[in-house]
């Protein structure tokens, strides 16, 4: 049995474990939150290093890809230093491939994403692949990075402008403590009420709301009108939350295992084990080949049914 553990800066309330088989290989997969405690996450990674087959880092990215540039997040690199022996990944390698494929699949096979669909990406600088793919399909994009991260009510409408602004801001933002940029620990269970009120119209005007689930959740207003939520990491509790808010449909890019979809870091760790290669040697083409073998498809859950 292969052991994969995701160590997350997120809440322990989301901890979960499953046993599952991929391509004939049995996996025990678990997620262990540390409630935003950086030192605890570091110590846990040190403890698990050399004792499991692969590690995932959750609750923060280590790398952000903007076009062809890769930026390293300082806090993420510090956490990576805890791991000396076991392959460790943050999901960014897979995200670029998996989420692009998910968009192309949905555009091809479902009516949920098509040219002209109004899409709000609450955060896009952390998932540039998804942003590019949605734009390629011809969706009417609103990239909300400035709105929700910086509180600046300026919707970025094109990938070109997103890339230009990212190249100005990301090289410095990655040096900042992660808690200033992303909800960690207990903040993941709370909403930013001021921004929920101020920026509700961006959610209400969109047909699809995409991006990181913790950010989507943090700023989501009441009274949605059956919008589609396109994200990855969700639990049963999240599904209840979305239903209560009025969302119509949930699409997750990672498969649902025992009632929840794990983070991209977990799935990337699984693929690293299956490939048998060190993470640095795995190319997007390798990930793509494995994804096709696994027949990974976006999971669609309808939250609302006409009575």
């Amino acid at each position: 049995m292969k052991q994969v553990v995701s160590v997350s800066l997120g809440s322990t309330k989301r901890d979960h474990q499953v046993e599952v088989e991929f391509l004939g290989e049995k996996f025990a997969i678990s997620r262990r939150g540390t409630d935003g405690d950086f030192d605890r996450a570091f110590a846990l990674l040190q403890e698990l290093d050399g004792r499991v087959d692969a590690l995932g880092l959750g609750g923060l990215d280590v790398y952000i890809y903007v076009g062809r540039k890769r930026y390293a997040i300082r806090d993420g690199l510090k956490l990576m230093e805890a791991v000396k022996h076991t392959p460790a990944v943050d999901g960014s390698g897979l995200k670029n491939t998996l989420e692009r494929e998910a968009v192309y699949f949905l555009a091809r096979e479902s009516g949920l994403i098509r040219a002209g669909t109004r899409i709000l990406m609450v955060s896009s600088m952390d998932r540039f692949g998804m942003a590019e793919a949605l734009s390629e399909v011809g969706c009417d994009m609103t990239f909300g990075d400035l709105i929700f991260t910086a509180g600046i009510p300026y919707p970025i409408k094109t990938v070109e402008e997103l890339e230009e602004i990212a190249n100005k801001t990301v090289p410095e933002m990655v040096k900042m403590p992660i808690h200033m940029l992303y909800p960690t620990g207990k903040k993941q269970e709370e909403q930013d009420e001021a921004k929920v009120r101020k920026f509700a119209s961006y959610y209400h005007d969109a047909e699809v709301i995409a991006g990181d689930f913790h950010l989507i959740r943090r700023y989501m207003p009441d009274g949605l009108n059956k919008q589609v939520i396109f994200t990855n990491t969700t639990t049963r509790g999240d599904i209840e939350f979305l239903t209560k808010k009025g969302a119509g449909c949930l699409i997750t890019t990672t498969p649902v295992l025992s009632g929840r979809s794990f983070g991209t870091n977990v799935m990337e760790a699984v693929l690293v084990v299956l490939s048998g290669k060190p993470p640095a040697e795995i190319s997007p083409a390798d990930y793509l080949e494995l994804l096709h073998k696994l027949n990974f498809r976006p999971q669609i859950i309808h939250l609302w049914e006409e009575k």
Binding site: A150, I152, N167, K168, T169, P171, A194
Partner: peptide
């Protein structure tokens, strides 16, 4: 406030960033 500090930082980067 933290929100104001982040916003001021963004403004500065929008002027002087790469």
């Amino acid at each position: 406030s933290e929100d104001d500090i982040i916003r001021l930082d963004f403004i500065s980067l929008m002027i002087w960033g790469e």
